[in-house]
Amino acid sequence: MSFTQRPSVVFTEGRGSWLQDSQGRRYLDLVQGWAVNTLGHAPETVAQAIAAQAGRLLHVGPGLHNAPAIALAERLTALSGLGRCFLASSGAEANEGAIKLARKFGRKKRGGAHEIITFRNAFHGRTLATMSASGKPGFDTLFAPQVPGFPKATLNDIESVTSLIGPGTVGVMLESIQGEAGVIEAQPEFLRALRRVCSELGLLLIVDEVQTGIGRTGPLFAHQRAGIVPDVMTLGKGLGGGVPIAALLAREEVCCFEPGDQGGTYTGNPLVCAAALAVLDVVTAPGFLSDMSKRAARFREGLDALARREGAPACSGQGLLLALELPQPGRAQRVADALRERAGEGLLVNAVRPERLRLMPALNASEADLSLALQWLDDMLRRVN
């Protein structure tokens, strides 16, 4: 089925920061499956973990325990400080689970409260409930009628949140950085204010770390920059380093699912859990995230220099989730297309908005590859208006 516009090129293999198409042409990839490939294309450590697990056990179903799922849940709860973990197959599925958990909590603990305050321009997935929770323009009519119960506040405006709180409110849900909106950050003081409000009123603070989690922004989870701990957190994308896995984590006191409330055929699949454990082994190794943050800071300095030359604001984002603003209408897509089709080797970037380029390199992208990307981007910005 046709569901999005894609260039005609067909990719056949990749290694690290580089992709190769069916004609043998190479591309430096700063999209990495939309922030999925934490360790780049075909990382050896993940490939070995998958191969070893495939020779032992592929699938047992959600009604039985398996060792990799237990090990992964233990790792994630220890790293997050949240007591329980449900493993899913996609970020949207994890967010759908968070919505269900909050509504069940509201029914059991808050007299039937079910509304979850979310934010304009947010993106939480493509199921009917997560589209309704999202604030992406057009999502409110695309598959109407929408799932009710998601009043919209304005990011970084605490009064816009408190004005929506009423007897039917059970929680607040947001991204630490709104990725699909163009890499718009929730400011640390705003996250801390949300934490205070939710704690004072007994509301759940639900943080969607699907795009920002697993070291993408520097710390393991982006909300850690604000020094807060949410009640519920979701993970996806980078957790599997290229395989489909996600997680819903919550404080012990919040976990109120009963048998039959939640599930999924591939929940805790041992193959993808083995891959996720391999990713975590690398990302949590001593020095990995500090080294990544240093390379990311130098990359950002280069992007900011380009922004100054273009008369644009400094780039937004944290770590290796960054966006460069190109205010001229449609220029971001024109630059992205020209970079992909450049003579010789191509460069892949994402025109996340008509005026914004989003950059999501592998967390282990080399200094040389990031410098080369800056060089090619610099050259193309001079050519394409």
Rank of each mutant, 00 (worst) to 15 (best):
G149S: 05
G149F: 01
G149M: 01
F150T: 00
F150E: 00
F150W: 02
F150Y: 12
K152G: 03
K152C: 02
A153V: 06
T154S: 15
L155N: 06
L155V: 13
L155A: 14
N156P: 05
N156L: 09
N156A: 13
N156W: 11
D157T: 06
I158E: 08
I158C: 06
I158G: 02
E159P: 00
E159C: 04
E159F: 08
E159L: 09
E159W: 04
S160E: 06
S160D: 13
S160R: 07
S160Y: 11
V161D: 05
T162S: 15
T162I: 13
T162G: 12
S163C: 14
S163F: 09
S163D: 15
S163P: 09
L164D: 15
L164E: 15
I165D: 10
I165H: 06
G166L: 03
G166F: 01
G166A: 10
G168N: 14
T169P: 04
T169I: 02
T169S: 15
T169V: 03
V170A: 09
V170N: 04
G171P: 02
G171V: 02
G171A: 07
M173S: 03
M173D: 01
M173T: 01
M173Q: 12
L174C: 10
E175Q: 15
S176T: 05
S176H: 08
S176N: 08
S176Q: 02
I177Q: 13
I177S: 12
I177D: 04
Q178S: 11
Q178K: 13
Q178N: 08
Q178H: 12
E180F: 07
A181K: 02
A181T: 07
A181I: 07
G182N: 10
G182T: 10
V183F: 10
V183A: 09
A186T: 14
A186K: 07
A186I: 11
A186L: 09
A186C: 13
A186Q: 08
Q187E: 13
Q187L: 14
Q187N: 05
Q187M: 08
P188T: 01
P188C: 07
P188S: 07
P188A: 08
E189N: 08
F190V: 03
F190G: 02
L191M: 15
L191S: 10
R192K: 12
A193M: 08
A193Q: 13
L194G: 11
L194K: 08
R195C: 12
R195L: 09
R195F: 05
R195H: 15
R196I: 11
R196S: 13
R196K: 14
V197T: 14
V197S: 09
C198Q: 03
C198I: 08
C198A: 12
C198T: 15
E200P: 00
L201S: 12
L201I: 00
L201R: 14
G202R: 05
G202V: 04
G202P: 06
G202E: 03
L203T: 06
L204D: 00
L204W: 01
L204G: 02
L204E: 00
L205H: 05
L205A: 08
I206Y: 03
I206V: 10
V207L: 03
V207Q: 00
V207A: 00
